[in-house]
Computed example of a mutant assay.
Amino acid sequence: MALSLAISPCPNDTFVFHALAHGLVPDAPPVEITYADVDVTNSAAERGAFDLVKVSYGALPWLLDGYHLLPCGGALGRGCGPLLLTRPEHAERRSAEPAERRNVERRGADLTGATVAVPGDRTTAYLLFRLWSADRPPARIEVVPFHEIMPGVAAGRYDAGLVIHEARFTYPRHGLTALVDLGEWWEADTGLPIPLGAILARRGVVDPEAAAGWIRASVRQAWADPTASREYVLAHAQEMEPDVVDRHIGLYVNEFTADLGRDGLAAVEALLRRAADAGLAPPTAGLTPPTAGLAP
């Protein structure tokens, strides 16, 4: 019997899951794949719609009653956090601080009355934005499909936009500037990697240890022969140029993809603890992935 799997069409997901999706992982069951933006999969997972599903780490507090967190296949890392973008005329005046600190410590950013487009109200990006902006006047928030955010900011429909993934590489083409790199802010504040996207296995339907084994095998095959998935990845890359696809995979598919490890799990715990302490999410229990032997 086939398992239902929901992932994004982004290059990191299609690269990681190519082998599993194409029946190339020994002893793994067939899978039926749905491709959707993470805001869609977050909501679907809350309904228990998929057996294996990619979601935002920021959505975990509402999902762990029905799903196990798997320690592999997701997206964590350093230097890969969400960006808050705006048009140059709305960017704050550059300070005289050193460039390496400027994005992290832009405490004067004024979003009072601004309309900010976000890719989902339970995405990790939005959670990081709310933690970062907790001591600032509130902005008006609009949930907007990811692919509409940068064009909307450039056209003046929104004052700022919160973006993820390949937008890190392409936002200058839209004439936009980064007001803050929330990944830099998070790393400077915590010393931990940025937990972005998680893979979950439905309780009572999928054996989490078996699923972790299938996904790790898929990751290993992707790394062993990157050309095998090339056509599949490009077909789902939403007209992304090959060099952007390569940079995307290089940034988001890393050691944390194979195993969260102690640092990855600590990052997830820190994010959700801060969210609960700030009243942005319920407290999270049962977070530790069910597979033993997290890498150091």
Rank of each mutant, 00 (worst) to 15 (best):
P226R: 02
R130K: 14
H236N: 15
I164R: 00
D110E: 10
V143D: 09
P172N: 11
T170P: 01
I199H: 01
T124D: 09
E166F: 12
V206H: 05
F129L: 14
V144M: 02
R106A: 13
P193Q: 02
V104F: 04
Q238D: 13
V144R: 00
V144L: 02
A178W: 03
R106F: 05
E142Q: 13
R157N: 10
T190D: 09
G152S: 11
G161D: 11
W223L: 12
I164M: 08
V206E: 08
R173N: 09
E231T: 15
W132L: 03
R173A: 13
P137C: 03
R107W: 14
A210F: 00
D110S: 07
T227N: 12
A210Y: 00
I199C: 06
V153E: 00
L200T: 02
A117R: 00
R140E: 13
T190M: 06
W214K: 02
G156N: 07
G108T: 08
H165V: 04
R220C: 07
G113P: 06
P226T: 07
R157D: 14
P208K: 00
D121P: 04
A160F: 10
A198W: 02
V163Y: 05
P145K: 00
A222Y: 00
W223P: 01
R203N: 12
D110L: 06
G156C: 04
R157W: 10
A224Q: 11
R216N: 07
L234K: 09
A217H: 05
R168I: 09
D110A: 09
I199W: 02
L176D: 05
